[in-house]
Design a binder for these strands. Structure first.
Lengths: 141, 141
DNA sequence: CTGTATCCTTAGGGATACTG
DNA sequence: CAGTATCCCTAAGGATACAG
């Protein structure tokens, strides 16, 4: 069985907590999907697929599965619409919001053409903890 | 001219500031080197090479060059020791410390065997801004 | 000591077609 | 709608040797 998309986690390179975190989120797609999940509050496969960065469906599916296995996301069939599958972030995923917001801050500072929802940009730099609390409550936590 | 190691930046996928930041630091090595540079305050090629994660010399050289081009690092010949080259982080690099510390916090929380210098772990969770200020002053900024 | 230069391998990813 | 299944490709990285 050859692996075509990333289905497993890479081996730990060290026990440094930063290195550990990077072994999980240190790639081009993981934090993009997490951004959509935690900050943009996307819930359905099609919504993730529709992002500007244009992730491929197989890559997205692999990431969502990885998240499920790692306990970042719960997966359930939407009770209201028979077929839709609903993804919900867990605590472990929401705990990455500070990382996302710091990346956003840095990106905003050094990328002239940066473009993101104003209240998030503002919140990230002026009232980070408040914004996180607000997002948490929107997620029901 | 074929490219064997990463010498250029990838194309921007979107103007989302998070995506922009990830296009630069979203890989397995960039933030490891930045960790050594900003948090562990390493200065010489050999010091970076000696990290637990065992980066290869060509990868390290490529990253340092990339940093120099992107204005994250200044490079100068050490005036005291004739041959040694001294790498110093710029403001743009130090501005990534919050990202590193949030990754460290997450890694510490979810990785049972996480192992990092105590005062950094403590600082990252209890007094983040103070720790950053302290590190900045150690860097002379 | 600070890197280059090669060689080689493979995980990761884009495109696309298809299925329940 | 929510994925699988392929095919193919290449950027990225490991190993190693060696140069200034």
């Amino acid at each position: 069985m050859r692996k075509k998309t990333r289905k497993t986690l890479p081996a730990l390179r060290s026990h440094c907590p930063i290195s550990y975190a990077l072994d999980f989120v240190g790639d081009k797609w993981t934090l993009i999907v997490l951004r959509d999940l935690c900050l943009a509050r996307k819930r359905y496969f099609q919504q993730f697929l529709a992002s500007d960065e244009k992730i491929a469906s197989n890559i997205l599916a692999a990431r969502l599965k990885l998240f499920e296995n790692a306990g970042l996301v719960t997966r359930e069939t939407d009770p209201e619409h028979g077929k839709r599958v609903l993804y919900t972030p867990t605590e472990k995923a929401l705990d990455l919001m500070p990382v996302l917001l710091e990346l956003l801050r840095w990106g905003t500072k050094y990328h002239a053409k940066a473009n993101a929802p104003a209240h998030i940009v503002k919140g990230a730099s002026e009232n980070r903890d408040g914004l996180i609390a607000e997002l948490r409550s929107l997620h029901g936590k």
